[in-house]
Design a protein around this nucleic acid. Sequence first.
RNA 1: CGGGGUGUAGCGUAGCCCGGUUAUCGCGCCACGUUUGGGACGUGGAGGCCGCAGGUUCGAAUCCUGCCACCCCGACCA
Length: 519
Amino acid sequence: MLDTIKILSFVKTFVYSGSIVVPNYEIMSKNLTSRSEDYSKWYNELVVKADLAENSAVRGCMVIKPYGYAIWEKMQAELDKMFKETGHQNAYFPLFVPKSLFEAEEKNAEGFAKECAIVTHYRLENDPENSGKLRVDPNAKLEEELVVRPTSEAIIWSTFKGWVQSYRDLPLLINQWANVVRWEMRTRLFLRTAEFLWQEGHTAHATKSEAIDEAIQMNNIYAKFAEEFMAIPVIQGVKTESERFAGAEETYCIEALMQDGKALQAGTSHFLGQNFAKAFDVKFANNEGKQDYVWATSWGVSTRLMGALIMTHSDDKGLVLPPKLAPFQVVIVPIYKNDDQLCKISKQAELIKASLKSEGISVKFDDRTTQRPGHKFAQYELQGVPIRLAIGPNDLKAGTVELARRDTLTKEVVDLDSLTSRVEAQLQEIQAGLFKKALNFRSAHITRVESFEEFKAVLKQKTGFISAHWDGSSETEDKIKEITKATIRCIPLDSKKELGECVFSGKPSNQRVLFAKAY
RNA sequence: CGGGGUGUAGCGUAGCCCGGUUAUCGCGCCACGUUUGGGACGUGGAGGCCGCAGGUUCGAAUCCUGCCACCCCGACCA
């Protein structure tokens, strides 16, 4: 059908997960085969049409548009609350890291060396050979280059050195909301942009076990946030050595599964041992008066989470937002034939809005006269607003409202006097329903395999996570990656000890790990 | 950074191979009118340094060179 489909109605289609996606309503008539199966094209189109973000003129960077940023702000607020409840404080550190500082932790510097933006000059001047143009002033070369932070460990640890003297100064629990720059070879909107927004936590502790507990605690917080707010089920685990953060001794992570069967690392929390303390000479006197290096952690989540949100819940009509993160949870659309009706409906709508607001529900009343109701319906579906209320003359007469759910696309007529409680209940159901749906999808896409043939077959046809035995060696991991492009996403924290044979090498294994193709 | 592709109005595109009237079509936008319970219709209108910079030519969206950006596949990565 797709080879010859000609779109006659108001649609432009892309194919996603085997179904037809309708991200906007431009009249087109063309053969679709060239674009079918192009998930990320769909994704970019949808994201842009839903007014979340667009590519900027700067290589690999994105402009986050107001509606998209409102979602990020919601996420920020909830995460920040959780950080503070666990005793963390926010601070801010410089964007620029002197190269010498950056070099201090060798592994970390090596890990990021290939993707750094570097400031070498501090002044422009008029170009004498090209009037009206500017050029870099060759006389304004910096003595030491500045690295635009790809992460802030170096600058933060060099600062921490001055903050820690005694065990009484510990633990030091700092978080920073910031932008970082990684000059990635290949970028992808939300998932891997050259500049991105994130939070990075950096903590110092007196003991190893306390630092490990911190790293685990923060990974738990990420998991909780993903599941309770974003309605995205995640698997907690630790990374293998080759997937580990450069400079870390252990990397904890949360892994999510997208609708196209690819895995996405949604957040990481690192136990850094004493590596950074040693590199930046951060010592403290313990309660016995002896000098020791502090134990460190770092942890972060980024605007990539927005990509996860989009790719986990969206459907053919656009975004589907969980109520807890929607910029507004309810939109009221009036349906009217004349000014008199609009006036009456507006009064009703304002009453409903006030009533919902008093219950802590965020509401938008769209009384624009420039767009017709059908247009508004489609727009809010594209934006993923969880609940839509429509009020027309018939409702006014009957004392009712039409309530439509974004996730199930179902509609019901609700009496005015029970509306607020109904909306509250439905919002909860949507939040829970989205999680359940995503969980069911994921459960159906974790496959236990016993042989490499099976491994390859599942990866090709079914996709998703593969639970398999692994001999624990990097060589095996690398070879599997080379052959199948699948990587070990994590060694799940809750996986049971189980004797078996490595799917690739046949060597003994005592635990299953999760493989998948990843973003 | 290597391989492939693309760049024409806010968006999606035709034209390019084989240079030649005023650059095609749709959506969107603006005005007026009729409409308004699922992306309205009619009539009229505006909007383009054809990615940027050079070159070839009487003449370049079209040919050549360089650069830039984006997309896909690798390598890298949250």
